[in-house]
Design a protein around this nucleic acid. Structure first.
Lengths: 202, 202
DNA sequence: CGCGTTATAGTCGGAGCCGACTAATCGGAT
DNA sequence: ATCCGATTAGTCGGCTCCGACTATAACGCG
């Protein structure tokens, strides 16, 4: 097993993915990602993008192809992936898929201290989350269908949407069920511990 | 609605949670979190912990209570939450639960470029993920039952485990189903695009 | 009673990340 | 002709995060 990966920011994955299509300069990457609404998948901020590109270049995954000057605009450096970079891209992809990495979603941390909210507030909050998730899912589903129809894309091209929808649905299910259990009392609120802690007195 | 939150690292939530129980010094927090296996929920590293505590103090959520010197060991600063901090803690908790925030799980980014792996490699990788997830779920379930039985805790105290299990199960389901769809051909691999984006060979 | 080992407690510098800012150009309205 | 705002393209400083390192005290052992 290797000592931690040189390149680790997921945005680098997006950059590599784009460069498989054709050489680009950073600004074009940014614009393309936004156009394709991939900024819901990769957290995109301009500063980070330029840093990421630089880091990829340092590590030999990509290299400056040309420095074009269009009219009198500031010159843009166009990058292309290297052969080495292409291999790394596939290996990294492969590893991310194969090995589930620990992630730390905010909601999980909040659930850990759900007790602190007390039953009423917790139930309310979970219900609201449920409603918001429902809306979100509806929007995603509509967006997905629209894209599929207008562009007649094969399913594989939107597969990440299917995954996102599946996971959102699972979360919705859990939130609703937890809210219901609080209402009906199936999920009891132990009196002596408003904050999770379970200290034994011994 | 407020301009972005001052304190934003989830580890701060853990710190606040612990301080609801009793005043502590950072090292004790770290030890306690590890003992309770909460380091699976909050990403814990010593450096970050000290930074986080300092930031909480700067923002008035907590304050140094005493500077104890035990024997001749380096003196430890014990912190307690302030009233303001307690309120912020609850509000933050409440907001995290109510409002689903966009998260960027690594697997989602990888799925976006699943096409690049080609059908065989993708199918294999998804299958392996499935197996690993299955193991992980078994381990979590066993751990959960053990804790519940030996400590006789109310369900609420391990509710985050139930959530984690639910989500892992959903992911497992998806991975298995996607792998199956690739095998059976239900999820087709468009020939002209090994990488999402439609590279033409011309 | 010296001596390596583990537990205790924390520091520090560098890398990563982000948002706010800069600056030039182009297209249309005035 | 010119002014305004949007688009194009990128820089920069500060804050956050992290892991590697330091240093002392208690503990067991031959």
């Amino acid at each position: 097993m290797a000592g931690r990966r040189k390149v680790s920011n997921p945005l680098a994955l997006a950059v590599m993915g784009l460069l498989q299509e054709k050489p680009m300069h950073p600004y074009e990457m940014s614009a393309t990602l936004r156009e394709r609404q991939m900024d819901g998948v990769f957290k995109l901020s301009t500063g980070t993008l330029y840093d990421t590109v630089e880091s990829l270049a340092r590590n030999g995954w990509i290299e400056p192809r040309s420095t074009v000057r269009d009219g009198n605009r500031p010159q843009r450096t166009v990058y292309a992936h290297t052969e080495h970079g292409h291999g790394q891209f596939l290996d990294w992809l492969d590893e991310i898929v194969r090995v589930p990495a620990p992630e730390y979603p905010r909601f999980l941390s909040a659930v850990t201290y759900l007790g602190a909210l007390g039953p009423e507030r917790a139930e309310e909050a979970l219900t609201e989350r449920g409603d918001r998730l429902q809306e979100q899912i509806t929007r995603m589903r509509a967006g997905l269908e629209e894209v599929m129809e207008t562009h007649a894309l094969p399913r594989l091209f939107m597969i990440e949407m299917e995954y996102a929808l599946h996971m959102s649905a699972a979360e919705l299910e859990w939130a609703r069920s937890a809210a219901r259990e609080i209402r009906t009392g199936t999920l009891a609120w132990p009196a002596q511990a408003p904050v999770a802690g379970g200290e034994d007195g011994s």
